[in-house]
Simulated assay, not measured.
Amino acid sequence: MRSKMGSESEAMAEQNSMEALAKLEHRQTLILHRISNLELKYLPNLDSPPSSVPSDGADDDTVARLSAILRTNAVNDFSFKRVPSDYYDWALEARRDVLDAASIDHLCKSIVLVNTQAPSHVVDCSDRNNSKYYIVVVQYTAKFNAEAVKSFLYSLNDGKIAKKKFNLRLAPEETSVKLTGYEHNGVTCIGMKTDIPVILDEAIVKLNPDYFWLGGGEIDLKLGIRTSEFINFVKPFIIKCS
């Protein structure tokens, strides 16, 4: 009798153990499925990794042209990298990793602005202190402050131009392309068709290390550059605008 009861207890224990194991395997499957979904959502496609383009860019017209401009102007610490077409669908952390940037704060963008309230005689970029257009370089992690730029330009002109005559807004894409020669997400301050005055957010100047990334002239091309060399060449206005 005891032997029979013992066998039944062992069988029940074995069944409970099998059920527990099945539940554990089910949980593991769910966890792995969630991890897979997160990888697909936030990480680049490992089957098509971006290629790193040497800074001499011998086989690339854009890289070769911009590299020549940079070297001619004493900029030597820079690099170009190609990224996949879905780069802008990635989280900033994934973009940082593929560019080997120091942090997500080192990822920057160039925005073309138009002064919609400029006096009628201000139609181009001939006067950098009172230009119709400006190009602002800010971090992706920062929020651009147009009012800060407005106040800066008002002070830059010693208050001789009414503050209401400065109203910086994002330029239409077709205007940006016409002025810079670069498409959306490919805009860079180097080699533009028009010599647009550049405004650099001071937060970028304070980055450590002093090497940041921005558009490289094509949508899938990014340019990394030493901040000090960028400043010496471009000679931007440096203000707090984020």
Results as ranks from 00 to 15, higher is better:
R96Y: 12
S52V: 14
V138N: 10
M18V: 01
T227F: 01
I35V: 10
K150F: 09
L170K: 14
R65M: 09
N129I: 02
I35W: 04
E229G: 08
S7E: 07
C125I: 12
P44I: 04
A13R: 14
I196V: 11
P236A: 04
G159N: 06
C241W: 12
L223P: 07
F144I: 05
K240F: 09
E39F: 08
G159D: 08
T227K: 08
T72L: 10
G217T: 06
A58R: 13
D89E: 11
F166A: 01
S151K: 13
K165E: 09
I190L: 03
K109E: 04
K109R: 11
T29Q: 10
E218K: 14
N157F: 05
R27D: 02
G57L: 01
F78N: 01
D127G: 10
F237Y: 10
D77E: 10
L214N: 00
L43R: 11
F80L: 04
S48E: 09
S151E: 14
D89I: 09
K178R: 13
R169S: 10
F212N: 00
T180Y: 07
K222L: 05
K178M: 08
T72F: 13
S52H: 14
W213K: 05
K206W: 06
K164R: 05
T175Y: 12
N185P: 03
D105Y: 09
L156Y: 07
L38F: 11
Y154T: 07
K143T: 06
K4E: 11
P49D: 00
R95Y: 10
V53W: 03
F166V: 07
A11C: 06
V53I: 15
A146G: 02
K23Q: 05
A13Q: 14
H121S: 01
M18I: 06
P172E: 00
L24M: 07
N145C: 06
N115W: 15
E10C: 08
G217F: 12
E39A: 04
V75Y: 09
Y87P: 06
D195F: 07
I219S: 01
D124K: 11
L66N: 03
A64R: 12
K132T: 02
F212M: 06
L32H: 12
Q117H: 14
K109S: 03
Y140W: 15
P84E: 03
D210I: 01
I225D: 07
N45A: 06
V123E: 02
S120C: 03
L70M: 13
L66P: 08
V205K: 14
R65Y: 15
K41E: 11
D100V: 06
G6N: 15
V198I: 15
R96A: 05
I204C: 05
A102S: 08
I190R: 13
S126T: 14
K81N: 03
D105H: 15
Y211V: 02
D47M: 07
M5T: 11
G159Y: 14
K178H: 07
Q28P: 01
F230M: 00
Y88H: 02
D124V: 06
N185Q: 05
N37Q: 10
K23H: 09
S17V: 00
D47P: 02
L113W: 08
E19Y: 10
R128Q: 13
A203Q: 12
R71Q: 15
D105W: 06
A148M: 08
I238G: 00
A162N: 12
D100M: 07
D86L: 06
V138F: 08
V177C: 00
P172Y: 09
D59Q: 09
A58T: 13
I190F: 13
N145G: 00
